[in-house]
């Protein structure tokens, strides 16, 4: 692996390890997809390569839709790692748990999700840990499970994950926090499109195991 200076492990993620290092004189994030010891080797190789390439593609695409995401400095498909900009700020998850989030931030998160969806990008893992608040602006990170789609079903699945995280990890703020998000989403996607996504979201929830049929 090519790097300048030492790498410091800052987070052990589910499918990649995140290191803080330097790149051309500035601080940078090294996202390394190491082989997972418990996963079958050929399955493991295929997943790592596909996700590394797709992640970089998606990160570029969302920028033109007006979504703040890290700049990519370098990508190595063989060793499946990406070097990218280090965005300073605090995780939305921590801010929500500490109770210091203005409602406007959640509305803005809804707008950001709307912008991604209008660019046909499904984030795929939009938990509150993957939203960085930097001086009241939002940056989105970890596009490792992202993909392109125009299907309402996929957009609803994306929104369902945020809802799931809010209702479990941030249960004391639920459902208010999710309603704020939806209002921001409507501002970007329009009432009609948002309505379709919300309808699909309840259809997905009804498909859930032992869900109440309304």
């Amino acid at each position: 692996m090519i790097y300048h200076g030492g790498l410091r492990l800052i987070q052990r993620g589910a499918e990649a390890d995140i290191y803080l290092g330097r790149w051309c004189g500035q601080e940078a994030i090294y996202k390394v997809r190491k082989s997972l010891p418990y996963r079958n080797e050929s399955l493991d190789r295929a997943i790592r390569l596909q996700r590394t390439i797709r992640e970089a593609t998606v990160m570029n695409r969302v920028k033109s839709a007006g979504v703040r995401s890290p700049y990519i400095f370098y990508l190595d498909p063989k060793n499946t790692y990406i070097v990218m900009e280090y965005i300073r700020g605090r995780r939305l998850k921590d801010l929500l748990l500490a109770g210091g989030v203005r409602e406007e931030v959640l509305v803005e998160l809804g707008r950001v999700l709307g912008r991604m969806h209008s660019a046909n990008v499904i984030h795929g893992d939009l938990t509150t840990s993957n939203v960085i608040v930097e001086s009241n602006k939002l940056a989105i990170i970890d596009f490792g499970l992202s993909y392109f789609s125009t299907r309402i079903e996929d957009m609803a699945t994306d929104m369902r994950l945020v809802k799931e995280v809010m209702s479990s990890v941030h249960s004391s703020l639920f459902p208010r926090c999710f309603e704020l998000l939806v209002s921001g989403y409507e501002q970007v996607l329009g009432i009609e499109r948002s309505r379709q996504v919300k309808l699909q979201l309840s259809a997905i929830e009804r498909r859930g195991r032992y869900a109440k049929v309304e």
Binding site: G13, A14, E15, Y38, R39, N40, L43, K93, D125
Partner: peptide, 22 residues
């Protein structure tokens, strides 16, 4: 073998994500 490897790796990944999140 392939069914177990794939399905369990999926569960393992989701579990790992949840461990990291919570």
């Amino acid at each position: 073998f392939s069914l177990q490897e794939t399905a369990f790796a999926m569960i393992a990944e989701a579990t790992e994500r949840a461990l990291a999140l919570t």
